[in-house]
Every structure is written in structure tokens, then in C-alpha cells.
């Protein structure tokens, strides 16, 4: 059983047990355009909620990816180094960025759920 939450910076975070997978939403991937490079955090790196955690570069520009919640990076999706286009093809699946061991579940719970995020995107 997993739960997904969203940030107003268009990251998603999916919680399974105390490990959370993080990526960017379909909306974000479409806005960025073709992704050509992803810089991922190293395993063991501590990230804080709202802090810079990764970088995604499209043909046009570089964008920071923020950690939706704090924790310690357990693994990054090294497949994106060779195939950054996965971010466009399957942003909320195979195009995930990294996983963290969540340090405070409250930071996860207070984020937007799918319905609230859809409403937020609709308002943009």
C-alpha cells in the first residue's frame, strides 16, 4: 500500500513503509520540455524539506528539484544518467529521481494529495 503526495513545485513523493520515492510530475515534465541531463544526489546525502536535492536540465534551461520532505537518500535512479528522456516518457513511474528514508512523516502528510494537486495545477 503506497500513498502519493505532491508539492507546489511539482514534485511527487510516494511513501512505502518509511522509504519514499521522489520525482517530478507529468505537468512539470511537460513544462520543462525534453530533458537532456539529470544530476542526482549521492546515497547517504541528507536532504531537508524544500531544499535543493537534484537538478534537471532540458534543452532550454536548468531547474532545481526540491526534496518534498526531509530524510536520507538511499538510492538514486542511475538509469536517468544514460536515459534522461525517461523523465519525459514516464515522469511518475520509471522516471523517478531518488528515494529517501523519511525522517518525519508529518512533512509527508501535510503535502497535497492527488485531488488537491490536480486542483492546484488547474488553477495555474
Amino acid at each position: 500500500m503506497s500513498e502519493v503526495r505532491y508539492t507546489d513545485q511539482h514534485e511527487w513523493i510516494r511513501l512505502e513503509g518509511d522509504e519514499a520515492t521522489i520525482g517530478i510530475t507529468k505537468f512539470a515534465a511537460e513544462s520543462l520540455g525534453d530533458v537532456v541531463f539529470v544530476e542526482l544526489p549521492a546515497s547517504g546525502k541528507a536532504v531537508v524539506a524544500g531544499g535543493e536535492a537534484a537538478v534537471v536540465e532540458s534543452v532550454k534551461a536548468a531547474s532545481d528539484i526540491y526534496a518534498p520532505a526531509g530524510g536520507t537518500v538511499t538510492i538514486a535512479n542511475s538509469m536517468l544518467e544514460a536515459a534522461p528522456s525517461k523523465v519525459n516518457e514516464d515522469p511518475e513511474g520509471e522516471g523517478w529521481f531518488f528515494k529517501i528514508k523519511l525522517s518525519n512523516k508529518d512533512e509527508f502528510t501535510k503535502l497535497m494529495d492527488a485531488v488537491a494537486y490536480a486542483k492546484f495545477v488547474g488553477s495555474l
Binding site: 520540455g33 525534453d34 537532456v36 532540458s58 534543452v59 532550454k60 519525459n88
Partner: peptide, 9 residues
């Protein structure tokens, strides 16, 4: 800046 095909294509 681009059309639906995207900059790469």
C-alpha cells in the same frame, strides 16, 4: 519557443 513535437525532435 516550440511546438508539440518538442525542441529535440
Amino acid at each position: 519557443v516550440q511546438y508539440p513535437a518538442g525542441i529535440l525532435r
